[in-house]
């Protein structure tokens, strides 16, 4: 009722003191032209991801017999994923034991190749007296290899066909046994070993709510 009555009365203007006016400086403003679209193509800009994921896949693969032609291989492949470069508590840190035997069909530029079984190893228990750092609760840690975010990682006990090209210094993947070879890991061939080292720094959306 009060508000309605108030609405019928004349409104008296309140006197408000304005702050002192600052000296006005006319800025040069470019008039927008609709005839010529603004040329932003020469300006370099690049939106930066709010979070980054660092992927580090590395390992030494031993080839046998010595000096080849190689018929078997064995070694390890460590898969590490670090959120925003946190290497102290990496989100994902698993090691595959890899063993392989020779295959017949290779990619066109490849020199040797193997059908390789990927076997996730149990984490090495800390030695007696070794200090173990506990990750704070707010830092997410992957519980299994399936939780890692690198696309198309091998599953535990999965067998994949990979072949190496000395010229390309690249391991190629026979994509799920389809006969289509795709580049997989850069690797260096030195003295009957392959040193695999794959590093990427990519945008990261987060681990989700679970």
């Amino acid at each position: 009722m009060f508000w309605i009555l108030l609405a019928c009365t004349e409104k008296t203007a309140e006197v408000v003191e304005l702050p002192e006016e600052e000296e006005y400086i006319e800025e040069e403003v470019a008039e927008p032209s609709f005839e010529d679209a603004p040329n932003t193509e020469d300006v370099v800009f690049d939106e930066v991801p709010p979070q980054m994921l660092h992927l580090v896949h590395s390992g030494i693969w031993n080839l046998a017999p010595i000096a080849g032609p190689y018929t078997t291989m064995f070694g390890e492949l460590n898969i590490q994923e670090q959120i925003n470069g946190n290497g102290i508590f990496p989100y994902c840190d698993f090691t595959f034991a890899v063993t392989g035997h020779e295959i017949d069909s290779l990619c066109p530029t490849c020199d040797f190749g193997f059908a390789i079984e990927f076997f996730v190893q149990e984490p090495v228990p800390p030695e007696e007296g070794e200090e173990v750092l506990e990750a704070p609760e707010e830092i997410p840690i992957a519980e299994s290899i399936e939780d890692c975010f690198t696309p198309e990682l091998p599953d535990h006990q999965e067998t994949r066909v990979l072949a190496y090209s000395i010229a390309d210094e690249m391991l190629y993947f026979d994509y799920f046994n389809t006969g289509i070879w795709v580049p997989w890991y850069p690797a260096t061939f030195i003295h009957d070993t392959l040193e695999v080292y794959y590093y990427e720094e990519i945008g990261f959306y987060g681990v989700g709510d679970d």
Partner: peptide
């Protein structure tokens, strides 16, 4: 552009999808 991985509920895609997302110009 930047490639992305991770959980993104805004995209109606499987979790293993590959994504590029950016607003960038190479110059």
């Amino acid at each position: 552009p930047d490639l992305y991985v991770g959980e993104n509920d805004d995209m109606d895609m499987p979790a293993d999808a590959v994504v590029w997302q950016d607003f960038c110009n190479t110059g």
